[in-house]
Design a protein around this nucleic acid. Sequence first.
DNA 1: TCCTCACGGGG
DNA 2: GTGTACGTGAGGA
Length: 760
Amino acid sequence: MQRKMNKYTGWLLDMYPHPGRGVALWLLCDDGKRRCLQQEFPVTFYAAGKPHRLRDLWKFLACQPMRIDLAREERKDLFFGSVVVLSASLDAPALLPELFLKLANHFPDLTFYDADLHVALRHAARHGTFPLARCHVAVDEQGFIRDFDILSSKWEFDHEAPPLNILTMETDVDPIHDKPGRIHFRSKRNCITLDLAKAKSNLGLIDYLLNQDDPDLIITSCGDTWLLPLLLSLAEEQHRSLSFNRDPAAQIHYKKERSYFAYNQIIYRGQQFHLAGRLHLDINNTVMYHDYGVDGVFEMARVTSLPIQTAARVSPGTGVSAMQIVKALENEILVPLRKEQIERPKTASQLFREDMGGTVYDPIIGLHEDVAEVDFFSMYPSIMVKFNISPETVNTRSPTADLVADLENMTQEKESGLIPQTLAPLLEKRYKLKQQLTALSRMDCRYKTYKANAAAHKWLLVTCFGYLGYKNARFGRIEAHEAVTAYGREVLLRAKEAAEDLGFRVLHLYVDGMWVKKPGSKKPKDFAPLIEEVQRRTGLPIALDGVYKWVVFLPSRRRKRIAVPNRYFGVFQDGEIKTRGIETRRHDTPAFIRETQMQVLEILAKACDEEDAKKYLPEIRALIRAKQNELRCGRVPPEKLVVHQTVSRTLNKYRAPVPAFSALQQLESAGKTLRPGQTIRLIHTLGLPRAHAWDAPGDFDLRRVNLPRYRRMLDRALETILQPFIDDETFWLNGAKQLAYDLPPSSNWATPAPSLALQT
DNA sequence: TCCTCACGGGG
DNA sequence: GTGTACGTGAGGA
């Protein structure tokens, strides 16, 4: 029987389990209509374990109210090879989470696979879908998709921009710190400002706006943490609806706030509101938004296959995990559950292993001229792909047994492993993007997008390595992690040998970078033979980061003769300044100190070498005097003295009376609680308490500013960058220190003190 | 001198 | 839905 089909072409906006059966897909069609389509999408999960327990499970599942297809199958586990499993398929993906929760309780002794996967990842593996993919679908009269074609690839890098209707909702001030008075709504059609005090009576207007604009994408600042909950609760009070969702049948998906430990620090993620049929991005709750913007979020979603609203709010670790899951599903490899976090003391051997991380050399302390920095392109991911390192390919007894042979032969014999297969297209895309970027003018409209995409990839690639060694990763294995670092060390050593064989002096090695110099080598082309030779000996892509006019490797502050690997600064031949590990790079350095250090660096950047720098010293001296004076006389705007710190624990967990503690206390007593991972803003004050919370209500007496402490910070920041240029230790202190400290603090701020004393 | 606390990189 | 490095620097007891 021939059925009538409607055919549509458009962009895939979003996907979620349909509350009935299958999945709901939102298509932004080329005719301008937004269509919600349904598709049959049975999902299968598996269980392995003792036969009698699998029989119990079979009986249990057979009694469930929904239809579940059961079968005995043989499938592949990445770590253990073939396993016998009970497979269970259900037509309604929406019911799986709840069902699985029950199973985990009743059958804790069974091993489940493919049971806790996002439906979008399954769909990506089965149909090749990804967010914003161009699709062609045939739909029957009931609105069910019968035929599905993907017209674009996530690995292209000129993605056609989908014609999204965007609505931005912003408040006049940042709601985290202040009380907003107004909300601005802006879209192509409308530009409206609403008085928040009257929000209650304006709910009808807001609903009208949402319906009339019918945005595909709502961009808010603090929509997750403040605006949406506020508007939704107002609406609830008045028993009226707000059309945030496009799909009236679906619920707004809410996730609660949490603090967690990752990247060796506490991270705070606010509560979330995911819409159905539209996309909501809260720019304050979007990972890396300030680094890569909407373009980067889209790219993150494309390559990970995670829905856009999810991709925006997860860490790169989850993104990497998603990519691996899709690849595993494609290869019909069972996906284990996300492992529980079990606190377990480390064994001595684990500790020993972890000490053998990346290769770090002690740099040669001091200033060096005409130095080239060459960096491996995404070294660890490149190693994983090149040497096929994956949990299932690595030799577990001796992970690096093939290291030397691999490096000699540079051949690929083994079948490519799961991790290399996942990484290879991503690496290739980023490599091409980087090549394009170097050729492209900054004015080119593609530049910004490429840059954002490359930044999104960078994060995924960096995290992928760490994930191999993470004991709770689904596809992690410590031996694979070790193999990567072992290859990394060998590769870097070979690079060093190559440099020395070509007559270069190696000044520093750091994880995936090398600093070299040779008399007579000044121009980028002078280093081309080295690049070529390193590539020949390691088989890995490497590039010249640039040639420094001069670069300074800093000694440890505690032990002046010991070098530290990651504190350095320098100026490239094009005038670009690069700094690492010094005050400008730290998030807890107040703006005044950061800006001053940067200004001095900008003066130094004009010098072409150490000798030349001397003629800029008077200019620097004058700048420092001016800055010291500004500070002493209270002319530094207090907001430039504000220190931003990450709160690492709750108030009662602090053992030392540090400034953050005092500031937290003040906020607490004002009724504002900060969760671990959130940022606190404070000003150092004299006496006790040691700090004033910048966001505490009430006026702050500017005379309480701890000027000596800021002065110390200033002096230190200047010393960091000036020490190689100045023999005379009194240069930047020069009596001014004494004078500043002699002034009674109460005489500052209000009336600028005469600065006569500082004039020489 | 020891303890506590926060940060880094990447672009 | 998450990488429990590790070394440095700073402040305070």
